[in-house]
Design a protein around this nucleic acid. Structure first.
Lengths: 214, 214
DNA sequence: ACATGTGGTTATCGAATGATTACCAAACCG
DNA sequence: CGGTTTGGTAATCATTCGATAACCACATGT
């Protein structure tokens, strides 16, 4: 055999264990992505830097040292989420601003649910508007999205409202893990189908993997 | 004069200081209301039992002993919020189920914003769907609201979705403290006006008092 | 008057958490 | 090779927080 520290050579190298040393920038991105997932599940106050560290496969002090503070880490997660969202919308706008644009942006939005924690982290930030640092960043981000819809995408005020309202409803139902009840509760079933006429399966499949353990 | 412990008789009795002993039930309700405000601001994990205690004017251990655990306290806050919401809607339904019902229920919803923390606590619960206890209660509550809209109020699936979507958007903007930007940011101004065609002043006035300090 | 239940408080404890320090080893570099 | 930068970890620390214990006092019935 040879599994625990051979006499010579590298000790076997378990699958993912012996990370061959990453560049700090890559590691940083990896941690931010992992953090988005955890923050999405437990919110800012509810997540531990240690949870993030474990999710990213590094030690807790490493997270602290790399980001300075948990708040800073959250702000970077927030910034990344907004960047991703805005560029996804911008891409749709660039692909043409015909009457089909609202529907396309809507689809692009739902696609973002694939990125675990992206929209949920946003949502957690949104309800923390009273926090000095997070609230400020969250408001600015929300307004930037609104600006993009109104100005760049050419939505009317009412269209922008309807779009955002649906988005918030989707976020809420994802945060609620409503998909857990999809097969057992008729109301939940209808509610999900009505809010997500397209790409429902996306949310349902998502509900099966997710589990950050705590 | 006579201000610090008189020789005889009760020592002056500062305005609110010498609470003349409350019945446990009343105190409990008082704490739950105070807790709703704090939970609304900081969320479940972000709130300490001590903040709640101070907001309610009691000692921290008293909160712990009365509710057993912070989670239990939050669940009672959640239950109270849902009770209030459902009975407000039920009252509108009882007042007549004509075509004006959706608008009336909408107004009733916005009125609930007066009860500091009620809708925000709900919102915080909604995005914590992954939590075993809170998530279960939150899902059940959300579905009960949906049931009421669909069955009792006679909304179509689409009407129910639109109503809830707008509700979630309003909650989000309140959580974001978007009203802080109302006078300084044109987009925020329009966004608020569009989402709250009626009762905008309610949200604006609300934004001025609120401050739970931390 | 006195026992007793009830509405509270102060003091304190143990666990969890975010951050800091000190240290280590792989990689790069002349 | 020998040094230095860089990507990490283990150990530890100071706080904070939720909960418990011990105690106190007002009210109330008798």
């Amino acid at each position: 055999m040879s599994s625990v520290s051979d006499q010579q050579g590298k000790p076997d190298a378990q699958p993912g264990d012996p990370q061959p040393r990453m560049k700090s920038g890559d590691r940083r991105e990896l941690i931010v992505v992992a953090a988005a997932g955890v923050f999405g599940d437990f919110g800012y106050f509810g997540t531990t830097t240690d949870q993030v560290a474990k999710a990213a496969g590094v030690s807790q002090p490493y997270v602290s040292r790399m980001f300075g503070t948990k708040e800073q880490l959250f702000l970077e997660v927030l910034a990344r989420s907004l960047r991703t969202l805005l560029s996804a919308f911008t891409a749709e706008i660039a692909a043409g601003t015909g009457p089909g644009l609202p529907a396309r942006i809507g689809l692009a939005y739902v696609e973002l649910l694939r990125d675990r924690g992206l929209l949920l982290s946003l949502m957690h930030a949104f309800v923390l508007g009273g926090d000095p640092a997070i609230g400020t960043a969250a408001r600015a981000g929300f307004l930037e999205v609104y600006r993009l819809l109104r100005v760049d995408a050419g939505f009317s005020a009412g269209e922008a409202r309807d779009f955002l309202a649906n988005g918030m409803l989707i976020n809420t139902m994802v945060g609620l893990r409503m998909s857990d009840e999809f097969e057992t509760n008729d109301l939940a079933n209808e509610c999900l189908r009505t809010a997500l006429p397209e790409k429902l399966d996306l949310v349902l499949n998502l509900g099966k993997e997710q589990r950050s353990d705590r």
